[in-house]
């Protein structure tokens, strides 16, 4: 079976790639485009470490085929900072020590960004449920939730 040719947008840049129909978007990002910031923790949509935004929707890159990316706009952790300016969430995660090993961090950041774009003033419970698909085994979630709430407040101009 010949590989499929896919045209898409990744972090604002037009990107073309070839892939097998079986390859997931995560396989393509990591192994074809070398965007390894999205992590494979489970390959079954249970850990959220591969969270990306596809046409404005938060998804697990491991649960999309690469060929499904045709014509979509994909946003990954690599596109989160604006040049040398970190996104406020990235800064707050550092200030709050909201990461230990850091392997789940890209997924949490992408997911939290998607939350704050929809809901600039989430409650603690809303943050916790929105992020329930992102597993972290190091932090017990406390500092992550605080970092997201603090970012939301700052971005609201609080």
């Amino acid at each position: 079976m010949a590989k499929a040719h896919v045209t898409t947008t990744v972090n604002g840049d037009a990107v073309e790639f070839l892939c097998d129909a079986e390859q997931t978007l995560l396989d393509v990002l990591r192994d074809e485009l070398y965007l390894t910031g999205s992590k494979e923790g489970c390959a079954s949509g249970d850990c959220g470490a591969c969270s990306v935004i596809a046409d404005g929707r938060l998804v697990c890159a491991c649960l999309m085929l690469g060929v499904e990316a045709e014509g979509l706009a994909i946003e990954t952790i690599e596109g989160m900072a604006d040049g040398d300016q970190l996104h406020p969430l990235q800064t707050k995660f550092l200030e709050h020590a909201a990461l230990q090993c850091g392997v789940c961090t890209p997924g949490f950041l992408v997911a939290a960004k998607s939350l704050l774009e929809r809901n600039p003033d989430p409650t603690e419970i809303e943050v916790r449920y929105w992020l329930a698909g992102n597993l972290c085994r190091c932090t017990g979630y406390d500092k992550i939730v605080r970092a997201v709430l603090d970012t939301a407040e700052e971005m609201r101009g609080g």
Partner: peptide, 9 residues
């Protein structure tokens, strides 16, 4: 059904 991410699909 599933997480926020799963909800997206």
């Amino acid at each position: 059904i599933g997480s926020t991410q799963i909800q997206g699909r």
